[in-house]
Every structure is written in C-alpha cells, then in structure tokens.
C-alpha cells in the first residue's frame, strides 16, 4: 500500500487501540505493525506528536519484571478525535467500496 496512505491512517489505528484500553509503546507498535507494513520506528514519533497535541497522556506503571513501562492513555480530546477520524474513515471506505462494486469490469 502507498506509504502516505498508511501514515495518515496510523493515527486512527493508535487512537482506536487506546479506546479499548491503555497500552504501552511496544504493544501499540507490535499490534499495528503486525497488520500494517510500516517501519516500527515511525510509530514512536507519532506517539510523541499525539501526546504533544493533547490527544493522549502517559504514565509509568510497574511491571512484573524489569523497570516500569510507559503507558499511553487517551484524553477526552483524544476520544473525540478518535470518533471523528473513525467516522471519516468509515464513510470513506463505504464510498470507495461502492465505486469499486459499480465497476462492471471488476473480476471477482
């Protein structure tokens, strides 16, 4: 898939994972890169940006072993943004889907 396309959607992926539960960085990176082919290193700059924009906050939490992990949590603003982006994305995919279906040359 086109890299610019993927990157625009990355923000929605991160936000929507955090709607379900707070996650630590590796968890977000791992889950996303399992499904979307993107260099894992670019997700951390995105996480910093989303935090900087006030869409999420971070806290440290002890784990069973080793040093504490940094967890990411959505702020109210982040939840709102997630809903907006989700609606946009769903509308967009439905529209594109309809156009593709309408193509008489499509091979199924």
């Amino acid at each position: 898939m086109n890299i610019q396309f993927k990157k625009g959607v990355l923000e929605l992926c991160v936000l929507s994972m955090l709607v379900r539960k707070d996650c630590y960085g590796y968890e977000l990176v791992y889950e996303i890169s399992k499904r979307i082919d993107i260099s894992e290193g670019t997700i951390y700059p995105l996480l910093r940006r989303l935090k900087e924009e006030g869409l999420m906050s971070t806290y440290l939490q002890e784990s069973g072993e080793g040093p504490p992990r940094k967890y990411y949590a959505l702020t109210d603003q982040g939840r709102q943004k997630e809903r907006e982006l989700r609606d946009e994305w769903l509308n967009f995919t439905v529209s594109v889907g309809k156009l593709l279906e309408a193509n008489p040359n499509a091979v199924h």
């Binding site: 590796y26 260099s39 894992e40 290193g41 670019t42 080793g66 040093p67």
Partner: peptide, 21 residues
C-alpha cells in the same frame, strides 16, 4: 523499552533494528 520488550518477546536485536527502520 522497545528493545527490552522485543527481546522478552523472543526477537533478536538485529531483527528489532530492521523493523524499527
């Protein structure tokens, strides 16, 4: 932290570097 978690996950450092970009 990413390297620490990745190693705990059984991935090699070389592989982690590669997928980080």
């Amino acid at each position: 932290e990413h390297f620490r978690m990745g190693r705990a996950d059984g991935r090699s450092e070389a592989e982690l570097c590669r997928s980080l970009g």
